[in-house]
Design a protein around this nucleic acid. Structure first.
Lengths: 335, 335
DNA sequence: TAGAGAATTGCATTCGTATGCAATCGATAC
DNA sequence: GTATCGATTGCATACGAATGCAATTCTCTA
């Protein structure tokens, strides 16, 4: 670390030009003659010079960095989302600063670090934001886009799928297929997605004259969801259908029902998930689920963030993308 | 972006002190009296001042940033590893710069960006490094730690599990349980882990007078692994055991054998995986596998990286952590 | 060949913070 | 009350690259 690194001055000296020339040589819009460019590049190559991004950021006042906050990397849905987001921003020439937070954890320290880091945009994957920080981002005109999480604050953009209608569809589909004892495995109390899915689900049941048979929290966590399932099935009569707030938990339910209760899916119990993660399509599960359009969500989020970063001004938008029911084999068909 | 942000000068002016005082107030070892600290903090709070990390990095010549290059986020093993690594470095006060590369892709552009970004350390998760870049990292004394990938270059540190012996165990275990037609699903040609697992596996078979019945590449990818499985089972007699270079592919094999060939695991075919991802323990799979000690690997890698970053000098180490066989139910027992 | 205009080049300054050094302040000891 | 020593403070500069401006060179035309 001590070692002085090669700077544009070193290159300049070796090439016999000024530091400005070297700088111009490495920036797209610099005006240099082909001849000097040659000399400079040769010298740079010889010395192993690379422009120092930090110094560049300081003078241009732009870090070309986006901070990503993510809370559930163990959930394949978010791993996928992160992967896509990463690709997108990389290809746009942005660097990604990654921050992991616990699912329900507070993002205070992390947000503080992000603000200091001069990130030009913030992408939040299933992570929430307190109002003061949201306000601070707005004050500094740093665009924030939240995927699948809502904040009671109009300054930030939000991209989510139509959780309410996804839940609604799940509820009405189950009823329409003749189920009567519909249970729900919710995620976290603090999660807005879960709340919407639940609301939609309940409303659907209600509209058909039913209510939720039982409800438990699985915290979007596999083992917790297994426990939730056990709790749902402690007393007879068992639910005849389970709607889980995501695939991860739906699959936990399937595993538990099969292995511990000897129940068949869908003959004995129907299960519906949410997300349409890759696992849902596996032969073992054939999980009927509600697909969130990952690609579109990431694309929308990236577009919003990039747009606002480029414009340099915030134009908070709330975008809700349509969800599509994926019918597989985990719901018993009527008749 | 245009808007001038609040600087230490602004705070200084408001607090009626010098810029140095403000700086000292925000750095751990600065000497300031309680009184001025109060004034400064009050002023800072009032203005919403936060030290600019970029300027700080420039002057201290230390970015407190680690670059992480990862290639397979869809594989739960690496998603987990990334999560752990992220937590570790965050808690040590480092920021993570995330770069995704395709599994077999070249890392040239990415490495170039990393070097410019002034990262103080590089962590490579299942991603490879070309010799010139390895050399450049050494030249700049930037420590590099590779997890589960090897490079023919002594300058970088490597952490991996004992892939050879894991493979060896799988081979001998299958033979010891009476299997005779052992097939292998390899990962990528370019992956050193796959190569070691294979070598161990073959050596074990060989030592018992057997050889590999058939071998296919699944590229560490679920669907590719399913295709590989189909290829392995095109002609009778079928293999009576399959060893896959990771759990992800082993599970793909299980799914395919059950769903498309109507074969039972382990009655008809035994399957062994590698990694011990969470899925392996699910009731549906009960996958016998070779556990890589994720925690230990990340801990070791972090320790190596942090140590070298702190020392400011490279001391490349190759650490191979022991692997532990996890016996579950996917291998038919003799007799 | 001279002159006008365009293209290059170099100079000097700037970004926001940290820090060596010297000056100042405060407290303690006598 | 004064000398002394340590704790604070401010000044000035440095980090490495980008850029406005002026100086210079080049290019082309008449």
């Amino acid at each position: 670390m001590k070692r002085r690194s090669v700077t544009s001055y070193d290159v300049a000296r070796l090439a016999g030009v000024s530091q400005s020339a070297v700088s111009r040589c490495f920036s797209p819009k610099g005006s240099i003659s082909a001849k000097t460019r040659e000399k400079v590049l040769a010298a740079a190559r010889q010395l192993g010079y690379r422009p120092n991004t930090i110094a560049r950021s300081l003078i241009t006042r732009s870090s070309r960095t986006v901070a990503v906050v993510v809370s559930q990397l163990d959930n394949p849905f978010y791993a996928l989302t992160l992967a896509r987001a990463s690709r997108t921003f990389q290809s746009e020439g942005y660097h990604l600063l990654l921050f992991l937070v616990s699912a329900d954890g507070d993002t205070t320290d992390v947000m503080s670090e992000i603000l200091q880091s001069q990130a030009e945009g913030i992408l939040m994957l299933a992570a929430s934001l307190t109002t003061p920080f949201a306000q601070e981002c707005v004050d500094r005109s740093i665009p924030v886009v939240m995927i699948n999480r809502t904040v009671d604050f109009t300054g930030v953009s939000q991209v989510s799928s139509d959780n309410y209608h996804g839940g609604y569809w799940a509820g009405s589909y189950l009823v329409s297929q003749g189920h009567r004892r519909m249970a729900f495995i919710n995620g976290l109390v603090s999660s807005s997605t879960g709340a919407y899915r639940r609301r939609g689900f309940l409303d659907a049941l209600l509209s058909q004259g039913f209510s939720c048979w039982a409800e438990e929290y699985g915290e979007y966590h596999f083992d917790k969801a297994r426990e939730a399932t056990r709790r749902l099935f402690t007393k007879q009569p068992y639910p005849d259908a389970v709607f889980a707030a995501n695939d991860h938990m739906a699959i936990a339910a399937v595993e538990t029902l099969r292995a511990e209760f000897g129940l068949r899916i869908p003959e004995d119990v129907s299960v519906i998930g949410f997300d349409d993660t890759p696992l849902a399509a596996w032969p073992s599960y054939q999980l009927t689920t509600v697909r969130q359009p990952v690609e579109d969500m990431v694309a929308a989020a990236a577009e919003l963030l990039l747009g606002q970063m480029r414009e340099g001004k915030l134009s908070p938008v709330q975008r809700i993308l349509p969800v599509v029911p994926i019918l597989r084999g985990s719901v018993r068909q009527r008749g």
